[in-house]
């Protein structure tokens, strides 16, 4: 069951190896890979958190962020993505979900390039110093999924 502490592991700085499908929902099998740095901090006295995503090698001026809010009555998280290059000025519709047995699954309906899709974020393989995030789209209401972005996070060291 989810609690407001689900993302406590995420506080701090991370080095992120990205594997991103070049084209989505077109049977593409070509991936681009790049590194990013993420920094996460708690907000609202622990009822949420916020992080940024900076990938200099991928898009030098790109900054992404995620806002995560825990709803104690539904025991669900809402994850809102925003960036300075796509949908500027708005938070994108949240993916909503919870953790079960160490795996967090968060979903929403969205329109991608004119096509209705189900969007799924999966957080898994969480340890003190590593975690995996995946994004997948489905065009058949969740029967089949195409993973289009994988992030392997490793806690950043400083010394």
């Amino acid at each position: 069951m989810s609690t407001k502490h689900d993302f406590d592991f995420w506080f701090g700085m991370w080095v992120t190896e990205n594997k991103r499908l070049k084209k989505r929902l077109q049977g593409c099998t070509e991936w681009e890979t790049f590194q990013a740095v993420c920094t996460a901090v708690p907000i609202l006295g622990g009822m949420g958190n916020i992080d940024d995503f900076i990938a200099q090698d991928w898009k030098p001026d790109y900054i992404g962020m995620t806002l995560r809010l825990f709803n104690p009555s539904t025991k669900q998280w809402s994850l809102y993505w925003a960036s300075n290059q796509t949908s500027v000025g708005t938070l994108e519709p949240p993916v909503i979900g919870a953790f079960k047995d160490g795996v967090g699954i968060f979903e929403c309906d969205d329109i991608q390039e004119g096509q209705a899709v189900r969007v799924r974020f999966t957080w898994s393989e969480i340890t003190a110093n590593s975690a995996k995030w995946e994004q997948a789209f489905s065009t058949d209401n969740g029967a089949t999924w195409e993973i289009n972005w994988v992030m392997q996070h490793t806690r950043k060291e400083t010394l």
């Binding site: 080095v15 190896e17 590194q35 740095v37 490793t154 806690r155 950043k156 060291e157 400083t158």
Partner: peptide, 9 residues
């Protein structure tokens, strides 16, 4: 050489 410990940039 490639950085084989990417946690330290």
């Amino acid at each position: 050489s490639a950085n084989t410990f990417p946690q330290l940039p």
